[in-house]
Design a protein around this nucleic acid. Structure first.
Lengths: 225, 225
DNA sequence: ATCTTTTATATAACAGTGTTATTTTAACTG
DNA sequence: CAGTTAAAATAACACTGTTATATAAAAGAT
């Protein structure tokens, strides 16, 4: 009430730094999802929330700051998708679910996925500032963690060979799913059905190459239903 | 001689459309390889060859035209790499060579590879004009053709299952190698050795998932040396 | 409560970008 | 050789991200 009165008489200059930030970020993600990266400009963003361009420079540190914030948001959303996957009866089921969730996220949030994968291209318009090894950065990410844990569980149960380090197998699976998804998003496949069947073939192939005999048996049992 | 004399007396305005084109294209590729996509501007390009911006608009159709031309150049170079791979004694050897060549090309020409793969990201700064299915476009490409032929040969010799269509298997292998390479170019792996071993693990895994028993045997024999 | 200092915002300017309109100028043609 | 055509240069337009300056609100001090 008190503050409401205050609002009427004289509107405070900044509505609290945090709501300003999220308001800007929401608008930015909308613009990104709407018209791609070139639809995201500091001027349009400022207009969208009804302020001036300087707001972007105090809330973030210019356009790159906005991108960086969106980048973290993208990873958070991806992680939400991954962590929503039930572990199921077998780690193999978990693994399959994680792969499907990764793909589903990418297809439903192409802009955010593009953001995540923008570092994947050697030369990106979203230049990376610090030159830390990408693996370290991603390793800390929750979404990578899920996959790692699933692989680890598979190895623990003897479903997957322990000849190779868990990180190594995780990286291989990551590359596999990423490879397919980026092609699918590019419209490489002629239909959704074709994309589905190729995703299945790819994941099945790489898995049968990584599973132990026991793992293969369990996989067949799981894939039956 | 005649033309040389002519050059001395009065230098022709445009030195023939084609040399102009290639001159611009060379400069453009240098800029792209040098400082990434943002180093490539029509103004800088015009300055580099000592002309005005309008030249770019008559030779190509603006910046997008230059990008498109570089894009074709990239595919041509990639195809050169692929076609330089000897077919070897077995299609499996050929296949392995093609994968290695793909990776080698990407590592040696990151800018050109980024160009090729720019269509792979759903939202690219190198927007695609025509909305034709990417698979059709690539299918006509020479580099894709090599892989397709190798897969086909493997199937013909019973090394690879013919349960799945050749296009399907080709797409799967394409996604596999692309997935690894894009991660490697992003600096995902901590060292070249790590990248090497993961590339090997990935390709071996997916292959053993696709090969027939006969194929697996042949692969082991080939991988021994 | 008033005065001062700090800080976020707005306005305007700067250095770029791709593209287009206009003008100049070289090359071709009758 | 004059007239036409087409390409190149110049300049302008509508943008972009960023920075400098000025204003006004919030915070701190007396």
């Amino acid at each position: 009430m008190n503050s409401a009165q205050k609002e009427k008489t004289r509107r405070p200059r900044r509505v609290s730094a945090e709501v300003q930030r999220t308001e800007l970020l929401d608008a930015a993600s909308d613009m990104l999802a709407g018209g791609g990266p070139e639809a995201l400009s500091v001027r349009k963003l400022a207009n969208a929330v009804g302020t001036s361009t300087m707001t972007i420079y105090t809330a973030f540190e210019g356009k790159d700051g906005v991108i960086a914030a969106l980048y973290e948001e993208a990873f958070a959303r991806m992680a939400d998708f991954q962590e929503a996957v039930p572990e199921g009866n077998s780690p193999l089921e978990w693994l399959a679910g994680l792969g499907a969730a990764y793909r589903a996220f990418a297809l439903k949030n192409p802009s955010y996925y593009a953001l995540i994968m923008s570092e994947t291209l050697p030369i990106s318009q979203f230049q990376k500032q610090e030159a830390e090894p990408l693996a370290r950065g991603i390793a800390r990410q929750r979404s990578y963690r899920s996959l790692f844990d699933a692989v680890s569980a598979c190895q623990d149960q003897g479903l997957m060979s322990s000849d190779h380090a868990t990180e190594e197998v995780t990286a291989v699976l990551w590359a596999t799913v990423h490879g397919h998804v980026s092609l699918e998003l590019a419209g490489f496949h002629e239909s959704k059905a074709a994309a589905d069947s190729r995703f299945l073939l790819l994941t099945q192939s790489v898995l049968t190459g990584l599973l132990t005999p026991k793992g293969k048996k369990a996989w067949r049992a799981f894939a039956a239903n």
